[in-house]
Write a protein that binds this DNA or RNA. Structure first.
Lengths: 311, 311
DNA sequence: ATATTCCATATCTTATGGATATGGAGGTCC
DNA sequence: GGACCTCCATATCCATAAGATATGGAATAT
């Protein structure tokens, strides 16, 4: 015979009732089968658990030992069931989330993570930083659950790209650059597309893929303006590092204007230029995990509430 | 459905094999019932434990959580079974032992307890001191397992009285007593029965019950000697306290000769007087407890080996 | 495309947990 | 002290559910 949880439950009932008949009633079974199960348990353990006398059943010394053990194990099982119930509800789990450097720069991102941790403390967040390409791929493959990025570079089927917000873009130039010196014609006068003519431009993009910079180049091309593309990098942070080093100018979402603030100047673009940077949440449409749903829900509502303080 | 240990064992096998078919083979069952049991478990927990793909079964995240829990519980059960195996062998338990003050005075008693503790460290000894009457009664009622006493005062059926050893008795007298002064006629000349004539005698006995003192009185009566019984007490220690206080004289087993050594003199009895003090082990004949058997066995062999150094 | 592997489903068998009926042992009450 | 009562054990029977057998479908590899 193998011991089963049933034996423990039955034993405990008898031990607590001190009475086979009463325990059987409490367990909603009849007395004889209970008698047999107890006996089977005693056989299995090689120990007599109860002294049978005319007024009921009393634990033997071995029974007392076993009582402790049985309680311990049944308690353990109860704890397990509770924990698994929380797992089932999605209140316990793991959630792998990634963001691009520029998405991480927007205040919405840290804010939403803090909120989530507070509300679902038993969901362990695994956070990584990566470029939009890899994030998209890893979400599709199931390695990641959610990602924050700017303009989607590819749109594999089955992925949801939810635009959380749009923010202006700024032109980032080295402090000693011509465009950084300009604010006299009217206090921070906007940069126009013409200003890009002949400039060394640093891009963040993958060749052939759409994105913020693809849009910018398209606008320039429309007007016959041809900037001089001196570098294409993977991350916007690298981008700004190069600007800070004086390698050229670039364009970034407004929320990055505090990066390298001592060495890079950020100038607005002219209103006529319809170029803005979205913040996008990516996840699998088929992901039925409760944790993911909680996260998507929290991100969406937080963004709708004015998001990351519109900075 | 109720969760049973079987489910945990099956789950663990599948999780470790990563393979339903292989796990089934390892469990000596077929694949379909295993499939069903796993599914039943998933139903019960409200969680999907495995991702089924063409090369086997891989744990989901919930499955990983459950793996920890299942291992924890199965380990707990294994520990329990081991402990109960030791209980079954009698290596773990409780043993209630009592002795009279005079039995405790014999070196065999502490010696055997020390030996026992060393050999069976998981058997908890509960030690008490009491008079022969109560010890006998409590062993009969099952409150105690073993007792050490001198001469049995009653012999309820079902109790075994095993004589471990016999030792001489000595006459205990106050230091300033006539009999204490005597050792000049031949260096510690023995006390005879005649010496008891008219003496104040202190007894340890229950009226009507046999015992060391009943034997002594019988011997005296045979020869027409009538000591003056001034007290009947419950414990031999009380007895000696009274002798030390000068209330009278008494007779005790030789092993007690170090009690009140500063105020009581111990004198041998004449060889012709056939009076000695046994040390007796009492236990229930029907006591099939291994721990009791171990104890009885150890006491018997220790006593046979020369016992408590014959002091 | 074919074959193979592995899990799921459907049906049947069997082992066993549980129900019913009865007996025996130890207490209690009159 | 005898009749009754309570409570557990034993014996037999039934029903449920675990397990076996047979088959099908999905995914991967050849």
């Amino acid at each position: 015979m193998d011991m089963e949880v049933r034996h423990l439950r039955y034993f405990l009932a008898v031990a607590e009732a001190g009475h086979l008949t009463r325990a059987a009633a409490r367990l909603n079974i009849q007395q004889p089968p209970l008698s047999q199960q107890i006996k089977a348990l005693e056989n299995h353990l090689g120990v007599v658990l109860f002294r049978r006398h005319a007024k009921g059943m009393a634990l033997t010394e071995s029974g007392e030992f076993f009582l402790e053990e049985a309680r311990r194990i049944l308690d353990g099982i109860a704890v397990m069931e509770q924990r698994m119930a929380r797992v089932a509800k999605g209140l316990r789990g793991r959630l792998a989330i990634a963001f691009t450097t520029s998405a991480a720069a927007h205040l919405l991102t840290p804010r939403v993570l803090r909120l989530f941790r507070g509300r679902y403390p038993e969901i362990e967040l695994s956070l990584t930083e990566n470029n939009a390409d890899e994030i998209t791929e890893r979400i599709a493959s199931g390695t990641l659950q959610c990602g924050f990025l700017r303009v989607p570079v590819s749109r594999p089927p089955g992925l949801v790209f939810r635009t959380l917000l749009r923010e202006p873009v700024l032109v980032a130039v080295p402090l000693d650059h011509r465009l950084a010196q300009q604010p006299r014609a009217g206090k921070n006068a906007a940069v126009t597309l013409k200003d890009f003519q002949g400039e060394n431009l640093i891009l963040v993009r993958r060749a052939g893929a759409p994105g913020l910079y693809a849009n910018l180049l398209a606008l320039c091309a429309e007007r016959g303006i041809h900037p001089n593309v001196v570098a294409e990098v993977q991350r916007m942070m690298t981008n700004l590092n190069l600007v800070a080093a004086g390698a050229g100018i670039s364009v970034v979402p407004a929320s990055m204007q505090h990066v390298h603030a001592k060495t890079v100047a950020y100038r607005p673009l002219a209103k006529s230029i319809h170029l803005n940077a979205p913040l996008t949440l990516v996840y699998r449409a088929a992901d039925s995990t409760a944790a993911t749903a909680f996260f998507v829900e929290l991100v969406t509502t937080t963004a709708a509430d004015g998001g990351g303080t519109r900075s």
